[in-house]
Design a protein around this nucleic acid. Structure first.
Ligand SMILES: [Zn+2]
Ligand SMILES: [Zn+2]
Ligand SMILES: [Zn+2]
Ligand SMILES: [Zn+2]
Lengths: 141, 141
DNA sequence: CATGGACCCTGGAGCCACTACAGAGTCAAC
DNA sequence: GTTGACTCTGTAGTGGCTCCAGGGTCCATG
């Protein structure tokens, strides 16, 4: 079942990927260049749609372009072992967990800072804690 | 007590800010240009150190350069009210909390994906869930 | 006074993953 | 044939740095 080819706008609508981004993916070799109409319009087919959905989902999961490239290469060889993919997920999960931990510390610091209701800058806890780090609870500078 | 001026390397060591970054901050007008030695070396003084520490702390808390610029402007007017600073902390806290929530969803998805022990790509859950989104638990494509 | 080595200078390019144009051309419906 | 939505290319910009080449400076030794 070979469907009608569609323009870049159609591909964009079906994937939620920005047109400019689609062209960018082609430029960096992530999406193969499609056939062109007589006037030069890109004409995509179903396999482009599949591939772009894969890419989109990978990006949504926070994988880098390079990781997605590797995952796509893997996906093209159905008989090869998938340890590589496992590794990449684990690595990325670590990364995400570290980021959450960092942001949680940040959040706690910001929460400590936020109770400074309508003073003047000279007595402001926020400005104070930026000026003299270590304690967000301290008095003014 | 006016201490001896120090070079960019000294400022870098005392703040933990990269030399290139210090020059960058000067270029974008975040750190005022210091005096120069006869040979053209930058000669920093105590107030540069204070200001750069403020910047560094702001960056560590995840504030954007523009926010830090605004906070610095505020800090220079000790008699003005500090509502602006309060606002910025609250906004940024929101941002951080949203980021944590997003990453937590991501983390959960990645955790669901990660149990694919040594199969072949054609049966791989990871590749599968990237190919056909919606369920990371599903069988192979 | 000369030399060595640590330090510093400028200007520009590169990073990531897009996004935003400008100025032109194409396609299909009416 | 005209409209108007769509698409094309190429370039530049975003944030916040980071790195480099190809030089110049500073000061403690010999
Ligand atoms: Zn990752
Ligand atoms: Zn305040
Ligand atoms: Zn913020
Ligand atoms: Zn697998």
């Amino acid at each position: 079942m070979t469907l009608q080819p569609f323009n870049i706008g159609g591909l964009s609508r079906q994937t939620g990927v920005n047109i400019e981004t689609i062209r960018y993916y082609e430029k960096i070799g992530l999406l193969p260049p499609p056939a062109r109409s007589q006037g030069g319009f890109r004409q995509y087919e179903d396999h482009h749609l599949q591939r772009l959905r894969f890419i989109r989902r990978g990006r949504d999961l926070g994988f880098s372009i390079d990781s997605i490239r590797a995952l796509l290469t893997l996906a093209e060889r159905p008989d090869s072992p998938c340890e590589g993919a496992d590794q990449m997920v684990l690595l990325h999960l670590d990364e995400v967990e570290r980021k959450i931990a960092d942001l949680t510390l940040l959040r706690d610091e910001l929460r400590k800072m936020k109770n400074c209701c309508g003073q003047v800058v000279a007595q402001c806890q926020i400005i104070g804690s930026l000026t003299a780090p270590g304690s967000a609870q301290q008095d003014a500078i």
